[in-house]
Design a protein around this nucleic acid. Structure first.
Lengths: 201, 201
DNA sequence: CGGCATGTTGAAACGTTTCAACGAGAGTGG
DNA sequence: CCACTCTCGTTGAAACGTTTCAACATGCCG
């Protein structure tokens, strides 16, 4: 993802690309967040991944995108033509390894997601997700995390309704595990407690 | 996956490799079926994928396997050292493309799985899965599919309990959509009906 | 023919969804 | 600046589907 094209600004809610459209570009998030989702035949929506800064998406190896990408809030992206990536790979073996490890990370994330949706309760899913957002300030101490997305996006990612998501959040608040100073900010007071919940109470 | 090492026979239930173990080999299923699963911290199990003949698995691009692979019944495998694959990729650009498209297919399958677990009911999940097994004899006409795995494996793949899986199966039988001559065989009588159910009644 | 693993069904308990109402905050125009 | 409105978030109560626990059926192998 070296070739630094001009940075691309995308406004809130805009579609970056659509599911099954021909894939010309790959992207990297510089600022903001992007959701990768699929619309199910009956109109329900499943968010497959929420990409945060420094993460890449649209690294399809088939011809068409496997999901729709939309901006959550204002987003700044780095965009790179696929042809350019292919070329780089032919020339420099080391970029090949980088590409594979990116794909690998994506695959692993998808598998984590499957495991979460398959067998966890609403509270467990929420706890898992908050922990994922909290990596970096792993340590103890009340740590604050910024939620780039709204409740509906969280719900669609977790495979829950918006109401259940809210209620689970309220449960965690009631248990003193977290607090929510405003709707886009969550403070984790009891990291160990959160981890315990994430792993099946 | 060209380098045809000797075919490897694995007996029913045996572990081919374990989650987080160092990944030395990649595999291709020749005969039988393999389940890729993860054990959750609380003992529950999620099956991430069920690999049928001609499918590959263990194509990790990181150093460790991202799941455990076990034989469902007797299995015949083709095994290939990762080092050998890497070498091939350096020498022949066309194998690189093949490798990427395999990874891509795996990624897409994982995303399908996420979408299924996120928002579908038990009956819808089962219908989806049966349809996936039925690709090939897509056409009309009562088509018979062989189930390589038992009910518990299906349940763990679908993110359901074994009882719910059974009941959903019984529902489909009661609706005249399918019949089950024996536990490892399912006959689809009404393909269109099954598709309708899979897409959210 | 037993014995054991596997599959099936029933009834109650549980958690999530649904539908509905209400609350809080941001932006707009009077 | 306030009232208005619109979106988003939160809570309540009933309905629904899945899980749980239990019993029973079936098939397979010694």
């Amino acid at each position: 993802m070296k070739p630094e094209g001009p940075l691309l600004k995308v406004s809130r809610g805009a579609t970056i690309y659509s599911h099954e459209q021909v894939a010309h570009f790959s992207y990297k998030v510089i600022e903001g967040a992007v959701r990768l989702s699929r619309l199910l035949p009956d109109g329900r929506r499943q968010i497959l991944e929420i990409c945060l800064p420094q993460e890449t998406f649209g690294m399809e190896t088939s011809d068409a995108y496997s999901a729709t990408a939309e901006a959550i809030g204002e987003v700044v992206l780095l965009r790179c033509p696929r042809a350019c990536i292919a070329e780089l790979q032919d020339e420099r073996p080391e970029t090949r390894q980088a590409m594979l490890s990116m794909l690998s990370r994506g695959m692993c994330a998808a598998q984590d997601h499957v495991a979460m949706l398959g067998h966890q309760s609403a509270k467990e899913r929420l706890a898992c997700y908050l922990l994922r957002l909290a990596v970096g300030h792993e340590d103890r101490r009340p740590c604050t995390i910024r939620l780039p997305m709204g409740r509906q996006d969280m719900a669609d990612y977790l495979g829950l309704t918006i109401e259940t998501t809210c209620r689970s959040l309220s449960d965690l608040k009631a248990g003193g595990i977290i607090s929510t100073p405003d709707r886009h900010r969550i403070v984790i007071h009891d990291m160990a407690g959160l981890e315990a919940i994430a792993e099946g109470s």
